[in-house]
Design a protein around this nucleic acid. Structure first.
Length: 274
DNA sequence: CGGTGCCTGCTG
DNA sequence: CAGCAGGCACCG
């Protein structure tokens, strides 16, 4: 479910509560979420480690643990991480609970069970979690208009499929892809390699703007995203096209249409996007 | 590249 | 009841 702004918001909401906390035990009720270890191995590897930092890379969360270990969590569509006092009843679909020395817990819920967890030594984790291929961080200084131009050059796929491709740019998902393409005035089904330099420059700018604003608004609660404290985001109030099929374009008054591009539901304005 | 599968739950 | 869902790996 969550894209870069939501994962970043979860990180920001959890970090002050978890930094310095020791994990004393884990409860795993859905072991298949653990991608590279058994539940027993996981319990042994995570017990007694202290959470030193939380880092986001693309849509991945990395928990830096004492003893040079890292826990990686990917929420996919419906995963949620929630900080909770130990006594509170579990939400439905709670599959993993990390018990902290303070008596609090970090709980993972995931109705669709698509999310995944990895744990490995720092030196191994990028390979183990299959993160080596991740593309550029769109909010980093490295992501320039020129860099985007070279990433798109010669590509025959649609611009939407390239924005969603985590090997090219890490962190954009369906909502922010549709929003960025609207703001850039570019139709989602345009061939990426055929965009003019001016269009690429505009796209580069709005990708950064829309993701930064998404972070500032603490994410998009469209159906079920909540941050690490269970709080809703605010970016759903800024959406121009996503989820607005059949409604009026806020710029031209034309109808927002829904089509399928790159196998995904895609929202755009035929008038404003060329 | 497009299509499919992984799961459950919600909507029309 | 079918279709759809904010993701991604895998297949051909």
């Amino acid at each position: 479910m969550p894209e870069l702004p939501e994962v970043e918001t979860i990180k920001q909401s959890l970090l002050p509560l978890l930094r310095g906390q020791q994990i004393i035990a884990s409860e795993i009720s859905l072991p298949k979420l653990l991608q590279n270890v058994t539940a027993g191995e996981f319990a042994g590897l995570i017990a007694n480690r202290v959470i030193q930092d939380i880092v986001r890379r693309g849509k991945y969360l990395l928990f830096r643990l004492s003893g040079d270990y890292t826990l990686v969590v990917h929420l996919r569509m419906t995963g949620q991480l929630r900080f909770a006092a130990g006594a509170l009843p579990h939400l439905p679909h709670t599959h993993i609970v990390l018990k902290l020395a303070s008596g609090s817990e970090l709980r993972y819920t995931d109705p669709r069970q698509f999310g995944y967890w990895f744990i490995a030594a720092d030196s191994e984790i990028t390979r183990v979690a299959r993160m080596e291929h991740l593309g550029v961080e769109p909010l980093s200084a490295e992501f320039t208009a020129l860099a985007l131009a070279s990433l798109l050059a010669g590509r025959r796929g649609t611009i939407k499929s390239l924005l969603l491709n985590q090997r090219i740019i890490a962190g954009i998902g369906n909502i922010y892809a549709d929003e960025a393409l609207f703001l850039a005035g570019i139709r989602p089904d345009r061939v990426a390699g055929e965009l003019a330099l001016g269009e690429i420059a505009r796209l580069h700018e709005v990708v950064r703007d829309v993701l930064a604003l998404g972070v500032k608004m603490r994410g998009t609660t469209f159906s079920d995203y909540l941050d690490g404290l269970g709080q809703e985001g605010g970016f759903q109030h800024q959406l121009q096209v996503y989820g607005r099929a059949g409604e009026a374009c806020l710029t031209c008054g034309g109808e927002i249409v829904r089509l399928v591009v790159a196998g995904r539901g895609t929202h755009c304005c035929r008038q404003c996007q060329n």
